[in-house]
């Protein structure tokens, strides 16, 4: 199965996506970042990790900005002091006092060990709390039952299985907005990393193992998702669109998926397993309920690598596109 060979996937221009999205909710991180560094503010409002569209992403970004803030308190004066000392004590400045005997000061020693230690102790608290609160395995507290999605990274596309709904999709992920999503992730071949920058935390997918991730999108929208771990020649096209849709829209999407496409059973999975890249999104009408576990438990063998034909191919197997 080499779906979409030679076709170019339609990708949204994430800038235009911003225009259609309400920005007010994210004014706080944007303003904070503007107050910190101009660069951050530029990136904070145009579809990156600081333009968070869900609770996990917002919390991650908040910790990121807080940490930068804490460190800038000490970094900015240091840089200024470096430049100021360097300038004032230049050899040609006759007004600067030469003090070659100033080689030790107990007071300064206490300060230079003390201040970094205090900053790191404070930051250590942030790290400790943040690591536990935002552990990707930790569920999001919500009255709604989370949507279950099983993710399998393949060479080089993403397979999303909806176990409760019995459908599956490739390189396209629809989830209801405002409701947590629980991802169970594995890989059919090499390691990848599942990452939707605007929704927050990424997590690795590995063969024979399951990782967990909990995300949520606040509002409907289309978000760019990608693999954040290099996985081979087709890696650059290993991206997808996460479509957060209203609840009724999600039911509709499921209904549409059930009516079209083929069935995902072990045979069609093994076909999908072959290396291919730049795959146009499509859906499966039904899905073998035991498929994900079969991949994880390696009842289904890991996906094969490149085909090797002839002596030349052992040297540099070509990527079929």
């Amino acid at each position: 199965m080499r779906g979409g060979v030679g076709t170019v996937k339609q990708l949204p221009d994430s800038r235009s996506a911003v225009v259609t999205r309400p920005l007010q909710r994210h004014a706080v991180p944007c303003r904070m970042s503007a107050a910190l560094i101009a660069l951050l503010s530029v990136s904070g409002c145009s579809g990156g990790v600081l333009d968070a569209q869900g609770p996990i992403g917002a919390a991650d970004a908040k910790i990121l900005l807080n940490a930068v803030g804490i460190m800038l308190v000490i970094v900015v004066p240091t840089i200024i002091a470096i430049l100021a000392f360097g300038w004032w004590f230049r050899a040609s400045n006759t007004r600067a006092r030469y003090r070659p005997e100033f080689v030790y000061s107990g007071g300064i020693e206490v300060v230079v060990w003390g201040i970094p230690t205090l900053v790191i102790m404070f930051l250590g608290g942030v790290i400790w709390i943040g690591s536990h609160d935002l552990d990707p395995f930790k569920p999001i507290s919500s009255p709604d039952k989370p949507t279950e999605v099983q993710v399998v990274s393949l060479d080089w596309k993403w397979l999303f299985i909806y176990p409760d709904q019995g459908v599956a999709s490739v390189n396209e992920l629809a989830v209801p907005a405002g409701i947590p999503v629980h991802f169970s992730l594995t890989s059919a071949s090499v390691m990848n990393m599942f990452f939707v920058p605007q929704l927050g935390s990424m997590i690795a997918t590995m063969n024979g193992m399951v990782t967990q991730l909990h995300l949520a999108a606040d509002k409907p929208g289309e978000f760019y998702g990608q693999s954040a771990q290099f996985s081979g020649d087709g890696f650059s096209d290993m991206n997808f669109i996460l479509r957060a849709v209203p609840q009724d829209g999600f039911a509709q999407w499921i209904a549409t998926a059930r009516q079209s496409g083929s069935a995902l059973d072990r045979t069609s999975y093994l076909a999908l397993c072959q290396q291919s890249s730049n795959v146009r999104p499509f859906t499966y009408r039904t899905v073998d309920a035991s498929l994900f576990n079969a991949v994880v438990n390696q009842q289904l063998p890991p996906c094969p690598g490149p085909n090797i034909e002839g002596p030349g191919a052992t040297v540099r197997p070509r990527l079929e596109r």
């Binding site: 919390a59 991650d60 942030v126």
Partner: peptide, 19 residues
């Protein structure tokens, strides 16, 4: 060094790892 310590904060790294 500052960006390094930033990447040592796990929640920040969840956003910036491999970027």
């Amino acid at each position: 060094g500052m960006t390094g310590v930033l990447l040592a904060v796990p929640p920040a790294d969840f956003l910036l790892h491999n970027s």
